[in-house]
Design a protein around this nucleic acid. Structure first.
Lengths: 193, 193, 193, 193
DNA sequence: CATGAATGAGGGTTCATTCAT
DNA sequence: TATGAATGAACCCTCATTCAT
């Protein structure tokens, strides 16, 4: 089902991008398979050749969006820098990525607050795994307090990125470097040793 | 259209609660008018007497959910307490409300990440107005820094409540009083003078 | 679901007749709901208001066809006549009915040789119950042999009516009264005492 | 199109058997070309090399099933025996064949009661030709009456075999030798001189 | 010869909405 | 005011068929 030849990668990528954009604009249910087909230039039957249902396509696109977000943030992490800098860069890169790709933010947000989400077993929130890893190492190296549950920090970290990005998309309140630093500092102040 | 007799208030409340629960479970598009009608015991035609479209009903239910959330959090605010305590109580009451009413959290979350939201002009995020008022007063009374954009603080505050509540609903990670205090402290540390 | 007002009876009858004719001509799968809708003048949604699936409609039409066949044959049975005459009249009336309504023969035949049929529990072949009752009485009154399994007689009786009727529809070989008598006599000779 | 090398005969036979079984289970329209392809291990494109449409394949499988039925019944006829014995053996062999191969009975039954059938010109019912030949000879040799139209006898003969076989498949009422003899006797009594 | 990815018309079904009662 | 039968556009998905490899 997912064995795609080199040639097809482009088609599939087009399919993903189209789906991402349409869902961002019209929502999961407002985006019909025929819309996706028309917009992406791939026949409906062909889409169903690769994904056996709309749900399966939606999940594949979600994975794609998550992977892109990962690459743009944690993927650029440099372990040679100090933890504070790394913390800020991850936040910052993720923010940059999301405001550059509002359709991905919208897609992921819609997914995680939709009933689609609840159906999937042990589906940790996007990026939560990678962030947990980072925090574990930071605790081990005595850089952040060891008495704060990591999921609390995740809540604040991810919640603030997402809300900030949304604030730009909706109200065009864009954070400059200083703003980002201020916001991240609030969090870092609370967790650093 | 919204002038309802006493007798009807109960019907309307039932309609709201039904809609809230169904949407939480099945999403906006997974919840049909006939489902709402059947579950609430109100004939479809009757629903259309009060609300001229499904969208209008959805907006009315949203207002209801927002009002309930307001009453449970900012509605209990006591201006005689110090700002730190008030800050924590608001967070805490909102958290309690959301975990007691997961359907409201789900409903509101779905709404704000859905295309329904974008269509409405100047639709500030839930509770953002009330929080802004609180922060303004706190700045005026020299309790929190005056150089942090309030929407940043909102991002963190609301993002953390919502994510924490979701963390309970999905993973049954419930915050006890100590946990809440720890989390709120992180934020307060970052913004207090 | 089946509570139909007097007014609707006509609509439902039209629906049945249309379905009967289309299925006879194009088969179960060759007959789409939209064809039925268009031909009967009833909107698709309305059909689904009464029958919750195509299968359910098909079963309802089958019952209708069986009832009509029953009324036309066993329904005219006169217990004051001798068994031979009654036997012949039942055969004859059923034959008349089927050649007058080839769409019913086609519909029933298609149903009983289709996979639709196997799914239904204890679905005895059309008319088999009524025929069994008749034979039981005939045995009791010492008119036919008691050592022939009744389902064998049913096989011959119903098989011959159906095949004869089909022979008329397909090849226009119509049995006159003499022909019917000859055929029924073959069977009666074999079973009478 | 039908000139098949020895090597291919096996593939084609597999194709036929697969089609037979799937159609018996799911009906003509419930059996898709892709199902046949998957189950038989022959690529869709390859099937279309041998048969230029699904209809053509269906007809080829029908011919196959008819031929198998012929071989199992009339093919074993022995002209040195008396007509009564031959009559009974043909009935009996056909019965044995059909209960051993319910998928063939189902396939043939579905075909002859489906709209597929009506489209084909001068398509006499299965085995009717061979039976007619037998009856002609029997009349010539003064063994059965000459005043009964042969298609009537066919109706009874074939109708009883098919219904009896169906009775076994559906209700597990199997005829033993005595039962078969009783049933055939009914018919023979009616037609013998 | 053999393959199976690609196609899109058409299938069954749902659902927001209307309107006669 | 309250009802729910009636509507048909639009949904997701299937499938016979084609054709480049």
């Amino acid at each position: 089902m997912n064995v795609l030849s080199e040639i097809n990668n482009k088609k599939i990528e087009a399919l993903f991008l189209t789906t991402l954009e349409l869902v961002a604009k019209y929502g999961f249910h407002g985006t019909s398979m025929s819309m996706i087909s028309k917009e992406s230039g791939i026949a409906i039957g062909t889409i169903y050749h690769y994904y056996k249902s709309k749900d399966e396509l939606i999940m594949a696109v979600l994975e794609y969006a998550k992977k892109k977000g990962m690459e743009a943030s944690f993927g650029k992490d440099n372990i040679e820098l100090d933890y504070y800098t790394r913390f800020m860069l991850i936040w910052s890169h993720l923010y940059d990525h999301l405001i550059a790709h509002p359709e991905m933010l919208s897609y992921i947000s819609q997914y995680y607050s939709s009933p689609y989400c609840g159906q999937v077993e042990d589906d940790t929130y996007c990026f939560q795994g990678e962030l947990a890893l980072f925090l574990n190492n930071a605790v081990r190296d005595n850089c952040i307090k060891d008495n704060i549950p990591h999921h609390l920090i995740s809540s604040i970290f991810l919640g603030s990125v997402v809300n900030s990005a949304r604030d730009w998309i909706k109200n065009k309140n864009k954070l400059d470097e200083q703003g980002i630093r201020a916001l991240v500092d609030i969090i870092w102040e609370g967790i650093k040793i």
